[in-house]
Amino acid sequence: MKKVLILCNGSPPSRELFRESFAQADYFIAADGGGNIARQFSTQPDVVIGDLDSYKPVSNEPFKVVSRPNQEYNDLEKALTYADKEGGTHIHVLGATGYRLDQTLKNLSVLKQFNSNFQSLVMKDNYGDTQLITPTYETELAIGTTVSLFPLSGTVTGITTHGLKYPLENESLTNGIRDGSSNEVIKPTVEITYQSGDLLLFVCR
């Protein structure tokens, strides 16, 4: 098991969230301008990777800087590809949301693209954690925690939940028609199953 932290150039995480994620990581990748944010936190990544249009280098940096100028892929894709080659199994991504909505939506698409490459892939920000969950999913959460379920693309069918205030029983969620935002945990164990589709789980911090 190898835990990899990726720091992107979106809305910066709080210092507390960054320190918590950094302490758990075996390897730290800064995606382009994420290297600037790492410097603000007085922390050095193991590697900076991207098209390097945002990263501002300084002299005598003791870490690797990898230029990947191909514009067909964004910096998060390049960082996740690198994490995969480094043997990463559990990936935490910071700074992938906020600021430009188009870039946040792109990063959610990247989440789907790479989700099967790792044992877990979670986007974290100051408000909560977002991940694509498997068709049979179980987690322990504090009672009162706010959670939301969203169909990432099209429709997610056959959703059944246990441990939430507003349960679903073999129901569907569809973009533009129905989603599962702002539910509430009422039991310590939350169970979610579904039949088909791509289901995003957001857990509020």
Rank of each mutant, 00 (worst) to 15 (best):
G158K: 07
T97H: 01
G88K: 01
V93Y: 00
P69W: 08
K2N: 12
T157S: 15
L121Y: 03
T104N: 03
P12I: 10
I143S: 11
D32L: 02
Q40E: 15
S196Y: 10
L152V: 08
G176T: 03
S109I: 11
A25P: 07
K64H: 14
Q103F: 13
S153L: 15
S42R: 14
T43E: 15
S109G: 13
F22C: 11
E171C: 09
Q40N: 13
Q131G: 09
T139E: 14
T97M: 08
K64S: 13
A79D: 03
G50L: 03
E191Y: 11
F18S: 01
E184F: 09
R39H: 12
A31T: 00
L173E: 00
T161D: 06
A83P: 01
Q44N: 15
G50T: 06
L108Y: 06
V4H: 07
I177P: 08
L111M: 07
V47A: 06
T81P: 09
T43H: 11
S153F: 14
V122A: 08
Y137A: 04
N9G: 12
L173H: 00
R205P: 08
G176Y: 05
V203K: 02
L52F: 06
R205T: 10
D46F: 04
V156F: 09
P69T: 07
E138P: 05
H90Y: 10
E138Y: 07
E77C: 07
Q195K: 14
N9K: 11
R39L: 11
V66K: 14
T145R: 04
S181K: 12
L200S: 00
T155F: 11
I49M: 08
L149H: 05
L94M: 02
F41D: 01
M1H: 13
G50S: 08
S148A: 09
S182Y: 10
Q131M: 13
L201I: 00
G176D: 08
R100M: 03
T155A: 12
C204Q: 15
D53R: 09
F22P: 08
Q195R: 13
A31L: 00
E184M: 10
Q24R: 15
P57K: 13
I6A: 06
S11M: 13
A96M: 01
F150D: 07
E72L: 13
K78V: 03
D125M: 03
G158S: 10
Q131N: 11
Y82N: 05
K165G: 06
Q195E: 15
F114E: 04
G163W: 02
G95F: 00
A79W: 05
V147E: 03
D51P: 04
G35R: 02
N183W: 02
K3T: 14
T134M: 12
V156A: 10
Q71R: 07
I143A: 12
I49S: 06
S21Y: 05
A30H: 03
G50N: 07
V110D: 03
N74A: 02
T174Y: 09
L80R: 00
T193W: 08
G33L: 01
L152K: 06
T157R: 13
L141F: 08
V147T: 07
K124R: 15
F202D: 05
I37Y: 02
